[in-house]
């Protein structure tokens, strides 16, 4: 590890494994899908003037379908984001001149000292 820190454009797009995603992120989409599937059957039952929990097998089936759809779209979205990052990384690798490594500056280097003038 060098003592002078630099901003490497490639490293900005790499997963450095130093960030823990929140608990809900992993289950959010499957959860919403499950709840929506269950809720749709309840709504349909209400619309047909049945008790909302009548025919519980339908609730279970639609909850499973909803959960599966949530998982599927979650995977799709991750795939899309990974591909996008890979494309960007590849572009940077092909055009190193356009993306030079720059020295990382601190605010102390940028800002001038503040002299209050009254």
């Amino acid at each position: 590890m060098s003592s002078v820190k630099v901003n490497d454009p490639l490293e900005l797009l790499a997963n450095k494994g130093n960030r823990e995603p929140p608990f809900l992120t992993a289950i959010w989409n499957p959860l919403i899908g499950t709840v929506a599937g269950f809720g749709v059957v309840m709504f349909a039952n209400w619309g047909f003037r049945k008790p909302v929990f009548a025919g519980i097998q339908k609730h279970i089936a639609f909850a499973l379908i909803g959960g599966a759809a949530g998982t599927f779209f979650d995977g799709k979205r991750n795939e899309y984001a990974a591909k996008r990052d890979a494309v960007l990384r590849h572009y940077i690798e092909l055009h190193p001149d356009d993306f030079p490594k720059t020295d990382r500056k601190k605010y102390s280097d940028v800002l001038e000292s503040w002299v209050p003038v009254r």
């Binding site: 047909f48 008790p51 009548a54 025919g55 519980i56 097998q57």
Partner: peptide, 17 residues
């Protein structure tokens, strides 16, 4: 709707479709 009223003795509503 008819067939779904537990108060007049319709039964098996939990799995009825």
């Amino acid at each position: 709707r008819p067939g779904y009223n537990a108060d007049v003795g319709d039964s098996g509503l939990l799995t009825k479709t």
